[in-house]
Design a protein around this nucleic acid. Structure first.
Lengths: 243, 243
DNA sequence: AAGTGGTCTAGACCACCGC
DNA sequence: CGGTGGTCTAGACCACTTG
């Protein structure tokens, strides 16, 4: 996006990695990169640290920086990546497939106690219930049920929720969703799952459920997603942090 | 752990925040902190950035750094369960249930090309194949197949792999596993799954597969875990990074 | 205009790895 | 030992927010 020094290096390196320019899986050392691109070593480190946080590379003090082979492998698959975009539409957009949305249900309801707690709502707050079928090239892959407080988006319409709500937020209100707290699990498919997602009875769904937050920490949406099992590939890179 | 400059500030700030020392929810500005603690502004930024990544504070350019009110209000929402998959024995131990391990298979094999790449092995390297059934209070919940290079742990025995390998690593070699790159998905259960995990044919398994790394970045193990679907609950707190 | 966080640089010194 | 990543500093300049 922006034209920052470390960001330029970041995208360049990522491109190179994807293009297989480092067959040994070892990147040039930091001082060389600094020279080659005529930027400070600090900026190089910044770019490399981001790549390391994303699980693209890992660094070994004293020996060098290496590409994570699993990262290369998974790029060719359909996936929901921890380090990428949060909006589901956005996350799956790659691979040149066209995302679609079919609105199944849209109404205003009174949230139960649990939902009120998850979204930090008061007793008199109401929420939208938005149930949508997500597709790729007309192939359904996910049933998504979202709950959004009315007071956050009083202007929601069937029109809007038939597209990407996150995109709408970004474009119309200049707000974006940058944090989420999700629980990932698996379940046998229900009859509805089988019907909508074209599953056989023995085929399961992946379930991703949780809260999406706005930049300022406001809980924006509780969402429950039931995915065709072949389309749920959640990649996650975990570093046990100090504290 | 270490006695680093930014780390000292990090823990100090966290303690102060918990103690309610900033009732306005606004932290001192970076330059003041730099002066007060007699450290560089870069180190201050480093500490603050970590806090922001953890969801403890959020920063507003031009106005200041603020404590996330949700973090104080309901800390349970911000479980850093993100790391709970590291060391499966450890992660599930909490519930007061006794973990058990039944060794299903233990042998030395020649890794195929893919596995060699994932673990950064040469053509003449061999690996252990360790297949184990994990239990809780005698209830089986996971079939785990792990691959560990012989050269990393030449002394492995049936004895050792019948317990927690991560614990052994920690106790005997003072090394620990702090990073992992995993892909989480779901699949219909196979006959073996159904038998070992006591599943009905329509009941699925959750699959977690990927690489565990040692502190120094060495790929330590490739592991493939098939979990009874009711036991796979992966919690993750995601903050959108760069890209 | 003043205050505050963001980016970037140049360079010093340390810690670890492998030959 | 040389090569490599890690930490830290001091300071310059930019971008945004607020009064």
């Amino acid at each position: 996006m922006a034209d920052l020094v470390y960001h330029r290096l970041l995208t360049t390196l990522k491109k190179n990695i994807m293009a297989g320019e480092y067959p040994s899986l070892k990147l040039p050392d930091e001082r060389s990169l600094s020279e080659q691109y005529e930027i400070s070593r600090s900026s190089v480190k910044r770019a490399l640290n981001i790549l390391a946080d994303q699980g693209v590379v890992f660094k070994k003090r004293g020996s060098g920086t290496f590409i994570n082979p699993l990262y290369l492998k998974n790029r060719s698959v359909f996936h929901y990546n921890n380090g990428s975009n949060l909006g589901v539409t956005d996350s799956f957009q790659m691979n040149g497939r066209k995302p679609g949305i079919k609105l199944l249900d849209f109404q205003v309801i009174k949230p139960d106690k649990e939902l009120r707690r998850d979204l930090f709502l008061n007793h008199d707050d109401f929420v939208y219930e938005i149930k949508r079928l997500r597709l790729f090239d007309d192939q359904p892959f996910m049933i998504e049920t979202g709950y959004i407080p009315i007071k956050i988006m009083p202007e929601l319409t069937r029109e809007i929720v038939s597209g990407s709500i996150f995109n709408y937020l970004q474009a119309e209100k200049n707000q974006s969703v940058t944090k989420s707290y999700l629980t990932i699990s698996a379940e046998p498919s229900t009859e509805e799952d089988q019907q909508e997602l074209q599953l056989k009875p023995v085929e399961p769904v992946g379930v991703m459920a949780g809260i999406f937050f706005l930049d300022d920490g406001t809980p924006f949406e509780y969402s429950r997603m039931r995915l065709h099992y072949q389309y749920m590939k959640y990649n996650t890179f975990v570093t046990l942090g100090e504290d």
